[in-house]
């Protein structure tokens, strides 16, 4: 059984920005343990000599010419926004720092 703890799930939920309830954390801790046990077997065959594949069909150097195309209007951009001030998206105060 994997060593998945409630604390770990709650840390992951924080990283993933999901305010899980304590009940969800409990349930997920159990489920995650079972799932991880069953998928951890990938390491059995993933030996050092095997290269990783990140794209199923290998392509390289896929580029776009540096030519401007059409843009969205501010109205289109804001159309789906939960809140805006007419030109910018509005969000609650940010805890933390200037980036």
């Amino acid at each position: 059984m994997s060593e998945i703890t409630n604390d770990q799930v709650s840390h992951l939920a924080n990283l993933a920005r999901i305010a899980l309830t304590p009940e969800e954390i409990d349930k997920l801790t159990g489920e995650l343990g079972v799932i991880i046990d069953s998928i951890a077997k990938v390491s059995e065959v993933a030996t050092a000599d095997v290269p990783a594949t990140s794209h199923p069909i290998r392509l390289v150097n896929v580029f776009r010419p540096d030519v401007p195309g059409p843009t969205l209007t501010a109205k289109q951009a804001l159309a789906g926004a939960p809140e805006h001030d007419g030109s910018r998206f509005k969000v609650s105060a940010i805890l933390g720092e200037e980036q």
Binding site: G80, P82, S92, I94
Partner: peptide, 21 residues
């Protein structure tokens, strides 16, 4: 909840991090 889709404000408000979560 910033550019599109659902926004849920937690009870009593909160920071943008709280709103996202």
């Amino acid at each position: 909840s910033v550019r599109f889709g659902l926004r849920v404000n937690p009870k009593g408000g909160g920071t943008v991090e709280d709103v996202m979560a």
